[in-house]
């Protein structure tokens, strides 16, 4: 009897002690808020305010799930792979940058199916040397990207990468991009997709501007593995891209995009377009301006629908009306 009690109490106590010693080790103590500094950071530090770390990855690894990384000063903080709920926040302290090269990703999110991730005030820039993507989302529950700029991502020699923001989620997720610029990408500038059957990704684009890419601007694509991608874009712009401004495509599953109060201008291909080859692709547009594009709109399968209140003028195809109108209510 006594032996049994001793055994039962001793083992948990030892385990608890071991846990405490692990948590208490200075290099291992995760914090709710960590700090990064280009000026004085050092990755041998614990990332507290007085002894900040140098890179996002070290800070991420030393931040508790649900915690936050605060940027202290302007500079370059390196690529990071996010695997838990966390926010990385730079609020007007100067450029908080990540340079991308060598086929890597600037910020990759591979979080758990219940994790919430936020990125605010970051600048991601491709510098050539082997391509890469700016922000890649593979899993998580929700992602918000605010006040960010993603520029000049380049492709690899074999044509992969080069996207500014690439949402390709294996978990059902909500994704929001707001007040963010994606510019001068070699690949699709802003690409949204669910990664397979049973996955539903819902996205909001608000005050997002996608400029001067060498591919399409905003591409809502449901690939051959199926799944559902549903995107609403408002007060956003796709301009100066070499192919389409807004593009919806579904090889399987369904892909839909609602474009309101937005602008598609000066794109080499169509201002708005759908492509359907086995799935269901729908693009609805209202209160928007479509001008200066190679074509105003096109549909290679799927549905382009208008609220009848768009300004479609000055495109290379003579501005045909969108035949399918939907009523405002």
């Amino acid at each position: 009897m006594e032996t049994t009690i001793a055994t039962r109490t001793t083992v948990p106590a030892l385990a608890l002690a071991a846990l405490f010693s692990f948590v208490a080790a200075p290099a291992q103590a995760q914090l709710a808020r960590t700090f990064v500094s280009n000026a004085i950071g050092n990755d041998a530090n614990d990332c507290s305010r007085n002894t900040p770390c140098r890179n996002f990855q070290r800070a991420h690894d030393n931040t508790l799930a649900g915690g936050e990384i605060t940027v202290l000063d302007p500079g370059s903080y390196g690529a990071v792979t996010i695997t838990k709920s966390i926010s990385i926040t730079s609020d007007g302290i100067g450029e908080a940058g990540v340079l991308v090269s060598g086929g890597a990703n600037g910020i990759a999110i591979l979080a758990g199916a219940t994790d919430a991730v936020s990125l605010r005030g970051l600048t991601i820039k491709g510098i050539g040397f082997g391509g890469g993507n700016g922000i890649l989302f593979r899993s998580g529950k929700s992602l918000t990207i605010e006040n960010c700029a993603v520029r000049t991502l380049t492709r690899t020699a074999n044509g992969t990468g080069g996207s500014g923001i690439y949402i390709y989620s294996e978990t059902s997720a909500n994704v929001t991009v707001t007040n963010t610029l994606v510019a001068q990408s070699e690949g699709v500038s802003l690409w949204l997709a669910a990664a397979g059957a049973g996955v539903t990704v819902k996205a909001i684009l608000d005050h997002v501007a996608v400029y001067d890419g060498a591919e399409s601007g905003i591409f809502v694509e449901q690939g051959s593995l199926g799944g559902s991608i549903q995107v609403t874009a408002r007060d956003s712009i796709a301009a100066g891209n070499a192919l389409s401004g807004f593009l919806v495509s579904a090889a399987a599953g369904d892909a839909s995009l609602l474009v309101t109060r937005s602008t598609s201008a000066n794109n080499g291909g169509a201002g708005i377009t759908t492509d359907e080859d086995g799935g269901i692709a729908v693009l609805r547009v209202g209160q928007s301006t479509i001008t200066g594009n190679g074509r105003s709109w096109s549909s290679f399968g799927g549905a382009v629908q208008s609220y009848g209140d768009n300004k479609i003028v000055g495109n290379g195809d003579g501005d045909p009306a969108i035949p399918t109108l939907i009523a405002r209510k």
Binding site: P74, S90, D91, G92, I93, G94, E95, G97
Partner: peptide, 23 residues
């Protein structure tokens, strides 16, 4: 990357580059 407030002089840009001041 701009580190602090001030005057940085005229510049002629001859290549792909970005000049960034974020608040």
């Amino acid at each position: 990357t701009v580190l602090d407030p001030g005057g940085y002089g005229a510049v002629t840009i001859t290549r792909g580059i970005s000049i960034i001041n974020d608040g």
